[in-house]
Amino acid sequence: MKIAVFASGSGSNFGAIVQALKTGQLKGVEISLLVCDRPDAYVIKRAEQEGIPVFSFQSKEYAGKAAYEQAILRHLREREVELIVLAGYMRLIGEALLAEYEGKMINLHPSLLPAFPGKDAIEQAFDYGVKITGVTVHYVDAGMDTGPIIEQRTVVVEAEDTLDTLAQKIHQQEHQLLPEVIEKVAAGKVEMVGRKVKMR
């Protein structure tokens, strides 16, 4: 399955996908494209080092969301992308991408949704004082982290945890869970029935 990874920052989850492919933990998948909305983001260097094609853009150079999403779609079609993986992509997906990829787009979020959606989820959970938080991979819909949940992993918040140590534990789970879910989706093991997601 040809996938495109969308990212906005350093790309540690992109790196985890690449590593899982190299070690054979993730099979049946090829990263055909990286899409990045920040031309200075480190994830672009990661992709270039691996010889993975990159489409980077700045939203301000387009008339609006529909315009830059149409530009993204042209690159996705050119690369025959079958699945979009949002891995630290900090923009809400609009109608243009959803129309073509709804049910074929997944997102990684650093909390146990529906708790703590949106930005700074790890900090939100830490400040709230929860004892258990975690990681969610879900299908993307028009809302903010509201799509059907595919899989979740829990992370215990210890009394001695700081925001930094909690973030490290969350990222560790992210790097394990995301490649696992991608492989299941690529293998046709994931079925969405309404809001419920079942594993075949």
Rank of each mutant, 00 (worst) to 15 (best):
A159R: 12
S10V: 11
A16Y: 04
Y62R: 08
E123H: 02
M1V: 13
I17E: 09
L112M: 05
P39G: 02
V5H: 11
Y101V: 10
P53F: 00
E80Q: 14
Q70F: 00
G129Q: 06
K189V: 02
M105Y: 05
I44L: 07
V43D: 03
A47H: 10
L92T: 10
K131G: 12
Q173E: 15
R91W: 07
V140R: 07
L112I: 13
P110T: 05
L86N: 07
S111N: 03
V43H: 05
I182R: 04
P179L: 09
V135W: 00
V157P: 07
L108T: 05
M192I: 15
H109K: 05
K184W: 12
E158R: 12
A4D: 08
T136L: 08
Y139W: 11
I132P: 01
L108E: 00
T133V: 08
G118C: 08
Y42F: 15
M105V: 09
K2H: 15
G64C: 11
E183R: 12
D164V: 12
A167M: 03
V85R: 01
A47Y: 06
V81K: 06
R200V: 14
L166M: 11
I182E: 01
Q19W: 00
G143A: 13
E174Q: 02
G103Q: 05
Y68Q: 08
L83G: 02
G28Q: 11
V29T: 13
F116T: 02
G51H: 04
A16N: 04
Q49N: 15
G11L: 12
V190A: 05
V5R: 10
A96G: 02
E50T: 01
S59A: 15
Y89P: 01
V29S: 06
G94A: 08
G28N: 13
A20Q: 03
V185S: 06
E78R: 12
E102R: 15
Q172H: 15
G188L: 07
T23Q: 13
R91T: 04
G118L: 08
